[in-house]
């Protein structure tokens, strides 16, 4: 943790103008993220966690403060196609099959056909949807669709995976299963992951560190190290250490 951070967020604030009234979505957030780290941004609605993620992704410009990724601006990193983004809804293109959806960013990057096929095959295997590769998204369940979304984000072999509440629309069973899948994929690919969630248990189970954000105005109120050993297992969810961490995080919220 002593090497230079991959992502440096410095005094980032975000103020919206909502019908003539200024709303502070983020106030003075600073954070350093190491390469290969799994970081969660945790908080209730309105705490600015998604806003922060979108600022890192160059989908939003902060009102003040800076974000640097390996010494570059988010815009440069986006243009270099080093971000893989997984949205809250899967955002698949209905007219493309599973295979074609995963392939989309590779087509845009004009990667040669053979390499495209290799990568897509490997990803289909990783998410366990080889049999569904020629299905259309509306023929899949919500969990399967989100797995395709993750595979598509990984297709460009990004440096950083940005995930915006990717499992929040799923039932608890599917969600826990996908949590384990995600950790398995993360271990294989070793990307830096920034994961937005409003579930305390989910953030504890997945992360190296949990950044707790509190609302009104959105601010970073605590950063909690999760020292549970890896690989994480289902059984860990029932361990006293897990409960202690969940309690500790719950108590760190301010002004909810």
């Amino acid at each position: 943790m002593n090497n230079t951070p991959e992502i440096t967020i410095k005094n980032v604030s975000m103020v919206y103008n909502d019908k003539g009234r200024d709303v502070t979505a983020l106030s003075n957030v600073s954070l350093e993220i190491q390469k290969g780290e799994f970081i969660s941004l945790l908080g209730p609605s309105g705490c600015g966690k998604t806003t922060l993620l979108r600022i890192i992704a160059d989908l939003l410009q902060p009102t003040s403060g800076t974000v640097e990724v390996c010494g570059k601006s988010p815009r440069e990193v986006r243009l270099e196609k080093k971000y893989g983004i997984v949205f809250q809804s899967p955002v698949l293109y209905d007219w493309r099959t599973v295979r074609k959806n995963i392939c989309l960013p590779l087509e845009l990057m004009k990667i040669d056909k053979a390499e495209q096929n290799n990568r897509v095959d490997a990803l289909l295997e990783m998410i366990g949807l080889e049999k569904f590769q020629n299905h259309y998204p509306n023929q899949l369940s919500g969990g399967m669709q989100q797995r395709v979304g993750i595979a598509r984000a990984l297709a460009i072999q990004p440096e950083i995976l940005l995930m915006d509440e990717p499992f929040s629309a799923l039932d608890e069973f599917t969600r826990e299963k996908l949590n384990e899948d995600l950790l398995r994929i993360w271990r294989k690919t070793n990307k830096t992951v920034i994961f937005v969630t409003h579930s305390i248990a989910e953030s504890v189970f997945l992360s190296d560190r949990v950044c707790v954000l509190s609302p009104h105005p959105g601010r970073l109120s605590a950063v909690v190290d999760i020292d549970l050993p890896r690989p994480r297992t289902k059984e860990m969810r029932e361990s006293p250490e897990f409960f202690n961490l969940v309690t500790k995080i719950r108590n760190s919220f301010e002004g909810v």
Partner: peptide, 29 residues
Amino acid sequence: VEPEKRELMYSYAAKKRSVYIKLMLPFSL
């Protein structure tokens, strides 16, 4: 066309031409 679908293209820094061919036109079909 849903804004998320366009944001996906934006995140890949896709050219306007590609956005139309791969997103806007098939969506509108």
